[in-house]
């Protein structure tokens, strides 16, 4: 998607999309016009509706994703997950439930693992996001990625991005002291193929610095 210059500041009160009220008034006018039959009017309405909605309902979003800065215009309802997958084409981050119930969408925001499906994109304005695509250094895989391959910590691969992002964060959080602890602190990432024992092995290996 195209990157647009921001046109509205987002900090501070009521100066972001406050003009939406006016916009709504205008649309009711347009709606009234639309009641008049005639394809010309209808087409005009459709176009106008589109354009107005596009301009007034979007807000500027600055994100640094995997070290790359992005400036976007997004509707406030757009989640971080959708921005990554649909706007930035970073489809490594997965949608498994869209409700914070599976962990497939796990990314790091300023180094902390979160469910990107429950985070509005605008909440993350100005933050640094790391996704699975940003973990490897060029050709060199992150040790956790290597360990997942070595221990076969996945099958279909769909939950894998989230598992690996969680696992990398887990080591940093310091909850990898025992197998039991790893299992508990990896329980926010569902794997329907059932690769759990191999995932635990991969994490233990990286923790042990054996890769």
């Amino acid at each position: 998607m195209s990157t647009t210059k921001p046109c509205t500041p987002t900090d501070g009160e009521d100066n972001s999309n406050g003009t939406r009220r006016d916009f709504l008034k205008q649309t009711s006018l347009l709606t009234a016009i639309a009641l008049t039959p005639g394809t010309v009017v209808k087409a005009a309405e459709n176009q106008w509706d589109e354009k107005l909605a596009g301009v007034f309902e979007k807000q500027a979003l600055h994100l640094e994703v995997n070290g790359v800065k992005h400036e976007l215009m997004v509707e406030p309802r757009v989640t971080l997950l959708e921005v990554l997958r649909e706007y930035l084409d970073l489809t490594g981050t997965k949608k498994g439930c869209d409700r914070g119930q599976c962990g497939a969408c796990t990314v790091h925001v300023n180094g902390v693992r979160v469910n990107s499906c429950l985070s509005l994109a605008l909440t993350n304005d100005g933050k640094k996001i790391t996704t699975i695509e940003g973990l490897a250094k060029e050709e060199e895989l992150h040790p956790m990625q290597e360990a997942f391959i070595k221990h076969d910590g996945f099958q279909c691969g769909y939950c894998t991005s989230g598992q690996i992002m969680s696992a990398v964060a887990l080591l940093k959080e310091g909850h990898s002291g025992s197998e039991t602890e790893i299992r508990e602190f990896m329980s926010g990432n569902i794997c329907r193929c059932g690769a759990y024992p191999n995932i635990v092995k991969a994490i233990q290996e990286v923790k042990g610095g054996m890769v």
Binding site: T10, D11, G12, E13, D14, S16, N17, G18, R20, E57, Q59, E75, P76, R77, L120, L122, T123, D125
Partner: peptide, 14 residues
């Protein structure tokens, strides 16, 4: 999800 206004104030009173 519907469209809504979004603001991000920096002060509690605001």
């Amino acid at each position: 999800m519907n469209q809504f206004q979004y603001t991000r104030p920096a002060e509690t009173a605001v």
